[in-house]
């Protein structure tokens, strides 16, 4: 990680929330740029070149999703979406358009900071540049197609291996059902979430994960899964 201070653009129309985010983020060594409307957000994004954007989906001028569309046309900056609970469709929509991750309001600062850090971590552009993934006690060796957990080798089917590979490549970040299905089963099966549920259940069993209190694969209700990064 470089020495320079990372800049985070906060696009939110609520003063309280912007102030809270400024305090929380600045306390952890980030510089904060603020915008209150979508228009302003797009402008700041262009002229300040932030390292990360935190975007509230409930903006007054236009739906925050339009900001994602606009910004994604010319930038790969990570976008962290804020949205109220029970607006899962909006979140999925935002993630499908190029949002990088989401946090439900009300959120805890620790949760938000964990997402911010995961998104800012330097990672290679293309996942195939990397050959060995190691997240916590789980290690996936791509060339040898081998998975170990705390040194113990796991026997995984091809689909299970692909699933774990994709999750590890995005460790700490949410991946939507659609992304996983498209990546592993192909575009035709984009909405067959039943496959996914079954394979995730099998993978968890092999990893020795307790779905009710997951250590590895967390369910993001209505959205997808997240491979948990240890603190």
């Amino acid at each position: 990680m470089s020495e320079r201070v990372r800049r985070i653009l906060v696009v939110d129309d609520e003063d309280q929330l912007r102030r809270l985010l400024r305090i929380g983020l600045e306390a952890h060594g980030f510089a904060v740029i603020e915008a209150t409307t979508m228009r302003e957000g797009i402008a700041r994004c262009a002229d300040s070149n932030p390292d990360l954007v935190i975007l509230d989906l409930g903006l007054p001028d236009r739906d925050g999703c339009h900001l994602i569309d606009e910004v994604r046309a010319w930038s790969r900056v990570p976008i962290l979406v804020l949205s109220v609970r029970s607006a899962e469709k909006d979140k999925v929509d935002a993630l499908d358009r190029g949002g990088s991750d989401y946090v439900s309001k009300p959120f805890s600062m620790a949760e938000l900071l964990a997402r911010v850090r995961a998104l800012l971590r330097d990672r290679p552009r293309e996942s195939d540049e990397i050959s060995v993934y190691k997240v916590g006690s789980v290690e996936l060796d791509l060339p040898r197609r081998r998975v170990t957990i705390a040194g113990r080798v796991l026997k995984l089917s091809r689909k299970e291996f692909d699933l774990l590979h994709f999750l590890l490549a995005h460790a700490g970040r949410v991946v939507t059902h659609k992304q996983l299905l498209r990546e592993i089963w192909g575009r035709v099966h984009e909405s067959d979430t039943q496959y996914l549920r079954v394979y995730v259940a099998q993978l968890r069993e092999k990893l020795g994960d307790d779905p009710a209190r997951p250590r590895f694969i967390a369910n993001e209700p209505g959205i997808g899964y997240r491979f948990i990064e240890p603190e």
Binding site: T193, L196, R197, P211, R213, A218, N219, P221, G222
Partner: peptide, 14 residues
């Protein structure tokens, strides 16, 4: 409705 794993749902509640 969509396909759900009850264990996931319990985890979300917890």
């Amino acid at each position: 409705p969509s396909w759900c794993d009850l264990r996931d749902i319990i985890a979300d509640a917890l």
